[in-house]
Design a protein around this nucleic acid. Sequence first.
DNA 1: TATGAATGAGAATTCATTCAT
DNA 2: GATGAATGAATTCTCATTCAT
Lengths: 208, 208, 208, 208
Amino acid sequence: MTAGNPSPPKGENDDTGSTGARKRILDAAVTLFAESGYDATPTSRIAERAGVPKGLIHYYFRRKEDILVALVDRLPEQNVPCEEVVVRDDLAESLRRLVGELDRRLHSSLVLSHLLWREADTHEVVRGALHRRFQSIVEQIRRVIEAVLPRVRGEDVDTAAVLLARAVNHSHSTARLPGTSSGLDGEIGLIARALDPGSNGRPRPRGA
Amino acid sequence: MTAGNPSPPKGENDDTGSTGARKRILDAAVTLFAESGYDATPTSRIAERAGVPKGLIHYYFRRKEDILVALVDRLPEQNVPCEEVVVRDDLAESLRRLVGELDRRLHSSLVLSHLLWREADTHEVVRGALHRRFQSIVEQIRRVIEAVLPRVRGEDVDTAAVLLARAVNHSHSTARLPGTSSGLDGEIGLIARALDPGSNGRPRPRGA
Amino acid sequence: MTAGNPSPPKGENDDTGSTGARKRILDAAVTLFAESGYDATPTSRIAERAGVPKGLIHYYFRRKEDILVALVDRLPEQNVPCEEVVVRDDLAESLRRLVGELDRRLHSSLVLSHLLWREADTHEVVRGALHRRFQSIVEQIRRVIEAVLPRVRGEDVDTAAVLLARAVNHSHSTARLPGTSSGLDGEIGLIARALDPGSNGRPRPRGA
Amino acid sequence: MTAGNPSPPKGENDDTGSTGARKRILDAAVTLFAESGYDATPTSRIAERAGVPKGLIHYYFRRKEDILVALVDRLPEQNVPCEEVVVRDDLAESLRRLVGELDRRLHSSLVLSHLLWREADTHEVVRGALHRRFQSIVEQIRRVIEAVLPRVRGEDVDTAAVLLARAVNHSHSTARLPGTSSGLDGEIGLIARALDPGSNGRPRPRGA
DNA sequence: TATGAATGAGAATTCATTCAT
DNA sequence: GATGAATGAATTCTCATTCAT
């Protein structure tokens, strides 16, 4: 399931050995990769930070790259059932709920996600996994839009989905850009209005 | 202005030495950094690819990082005068012209830009420069929007500007994502419609 | 007698533990040492191949080198009683019977023998054992020659013995050399003829 | 021609740079490989012994194995023109002259040759080169035999050639075996007598 | 007995950088 | 200006061996 040799005890993802050496290694790796990048982080520093001897790193992860692969498995589950978020006749709200839910799940791993995207170009395995995840977000958005506004042009749905998926995906990295405080909320509203001109992108006064 | 030691002969940017060694080094660097990343590209391979002796690299660039800095200077001029693109009453068209113009200028350096963004996190100098450039794009979009639709809410302008700037900025990297063929054009139309609900995101039939 | 710590249960040589782990370790070692050499074969791979846990290797063999030593004990008994092979007045036939008998016994361990000779230079214990064995073969050949041709010059006996012992000893490794298909049989005939010019190196027509 | 990257200046084989670093590395390698074997000799010890910094080893020889390959090129020329050694009607003398000549050329590299044979099993390149050389010795012996005794059975020629080639080839390693002082000379005589029963393996009294 | 996690001393190799020519 | 040999610190990775359980 994971890439390290001595596969994690049993639990769904990994870690939790008595001493939790494996977990501590991965934790340290996330921090350091985020700080200095994968290439610029020697495994020795990971060991040091994790408080484990250098050799143990390669006991759990044959090659350094396997650490990266194991980190991909740490990305949280991100499938949000469509029916849980769709609010009849209110695209903005529906999307907001979808994105909110996605964001809640991804939030704990913003750093991880950012770091992995950065390495995706040069690490096939990482790239594959991330692309699949991006696809899945696009798909979810698309489904929500179609559930709320069945009549919208397919082309527009696609465009909006990509636009929004990118926003979700890069919300953290964008957050580091200057003058980018706008946030997902506004972006969702804007896009919703584009698809559903009648709405104002704000929750309609119910009962009106 | 530039980073390499033996400052470039004269021209504003760099290169053009008799043999053009400096230029060939930078060209090679772009290709290789794009392929394998900065850290994973030895200066020796740059030399090899550039067809220059290894020693020459460090003659032109004291430290390896200086190559990266010199590459930042290669990013093209990107200021598009507002009045050149604004089309009265047609936001979509105006944005399309702005983005088209930006794109034309950036197109030749998509690879370069992508590569630099990837290194921005770990290279202060690169990060600074890129953030300034991103800011500038946001600003230009904002000005165009305000020129065409003076009455739009400031908040929406900001949101749209960021959304679009991100689209421009990542259009190349996004292009590598799966299911992302939508393209800038559609995205511009969508955003324009959000800001200007009366329009359809397509050039209005003039004279109607 | 043997080298491993937990001395083998009973049998003369080794192995036969309930699960036969020790035997399987040695079997695996022979194969792998033959393939890649002693130094290049990690104990972990031996364990893997033997299907035993890594720790068990060092339970049976304190140090890796002890495996090599244990392998020396696996070399087969090689003393062939002189009277069993001597055929009156026919040196070639006598030598052929001796060598044939030696070969039969050694055949099962050609790989083992080859592998040990290769490590003899760098492993004192191995070298000692192998030299003693080589000596013994020289001695046996010498005895047979003297039994058949008592009058031959001692010097020639020595020379022939060494020549033939070497042939026996290296027959397997030589077999791997190109253009070396001649085989022991021809070599024996040739040598016999040198010592006993009257013969033709072929069984004399009895009763002629 | 050789394997190290910065190919030797020009000379026929290698070495001879001003400082002769490359030569000193190879010299050190021969000594140490002979002592402890290839695998058990760290490049660092080679560097130390050669009196060069560790990095220089890998400047001249990308991979450690390239050192071995370069050593193969150090094996001396070994082609002895047939007519230079053939003495009419005296096989023993002819072979003695051939082998003597071969031995003279190989003598300086007995250690080298022994060491390479030991590694041949595990190093394809080495094995190939050595087999070719062995072949060539067999061939030379065969030609000499046929030049002196045109009527001898081809089969016997082959056998004798292999027997003798092996003697030449292993004379050094055999020299390390116990009770093996006989030497090539006796072996040649014995073989000559086998092929040419009329002779006694000693130079015939000329003019008798 | 058996086991596999743990350990740390090296191993090969890479590479930015210096520098004499 | 140019060049490529030289340098050595740093890096990834391997592995025999130990040891608690």
